[in-house]
Design a binder for these strands. Sequence first.
DNA 1: GTCTATAAATGGATAGAC
DNA 2: GTCTATCCATTTATAGAC
Lengths: 182, 182
Amino acid sequence: METSLKLFSEKGYAALSMRDLSDAVGIRTSSIYYYFKSKQDIFEALLQKAEAMTDALKASFFQALDSSENVACEDFVRAGVAFVTGYLQNEKIAPLLHALESERFHNQQADETWQKMLFSVPIEHEAKVFKMLYERGMIKNQDAEALAAEYHGIEMLGYFSGDIERMAKALESFYNRVFAGN
Amino acid sequence: METSLKLFSEKGYAALSMRDLSDAVGIRTSSIYYYFKSKQDIFEALLQKAEAMTDALKASFFQALDSSENVACEDFVRAGVAFVTGYLQNEKIAPLLHALESERFHNQQADETWQKMLFSVPIEHEAKVFKMLYERGMIKNQDAEALAAEYHGIEMLGYFSGDIERMAKALESFYNRVFAGN
DNA sequence: GTCTATAAATGGATAGAC
DNA sequence: GTCTATCCATTTATAGAC
């Protein structure tokens, strides 16, 4: 599973052959069929793992920001950077996301899980955070959904472009405008 | 070329066979080799086309916003929506971007062109626009780079998530804060 | 320019010994 | 559980007739 994740993310589903995989694992091709009934079966196990990761993400999101009573600009920026560099780009999650992204136009479930992991789950949480910040009187803007979309947009730009410094500056700029006068 | 663009974007490079392609075009597989010396050759022609599209984009960006002397919120939102729905999602560009995205982890040039088209070129232009808006006294925020990153982040979120309505609302929210008090 | 024919390699997958 | 051996379909690509 580990090796298939690595190779699927590097080569893509169609380009990865069972021979490549068995060579990388150090067994014969036919031995793979003792554990998985087909190549598709391996990929589906991967999809399941990604689904599980998404559920896990849903549970543990942004705890630091969520529980804090006072949000300093540094915390705010740090939380955003941490999500991208510490989570999306970490060695466990990144290959999973790459494998999903490479197949998302040819595999509906890959697309759905990818969107869930990168967009719906985090945005839903972020909207809750902004709602909380409003209710505590820490920000004046009531539209938590729009704020979450802006916030997450900055994160996604950092994730896809890889320019984390620019992302951090944009988050800071965002913070200064949203928290201005509070 | 048209058919290969369509099929590469739908199936991905490795999954598209020369047979699929020749069947779709209505000729025999061997006849393709009269025009292209290999499958890779076809994909590289596609990459070239994408590069040309990127150069064309660079030239014609956001003219409406660029030339206006007064930016109303509606114009601002409309320009952003137009870039995503009218350009990125149109029938000429979308398959090109999908083909590039599917291969970006296995093909460096695909990755570079994809990043250029979706991020560097538009952001560079958007930063110029915000700089202009500042110089004309229409906004108070001096950091055009950060504003462009925020603005483009919202667009990318709309593009990838497909939620154009949310994108429009976030752009409106962004406008209201950036242009507040001017 | 398009075809038939075919080469030569690689693909996913199975049978059955150990 | 892992192996050898093998099947058979499909792949990219070429040669050469028309």
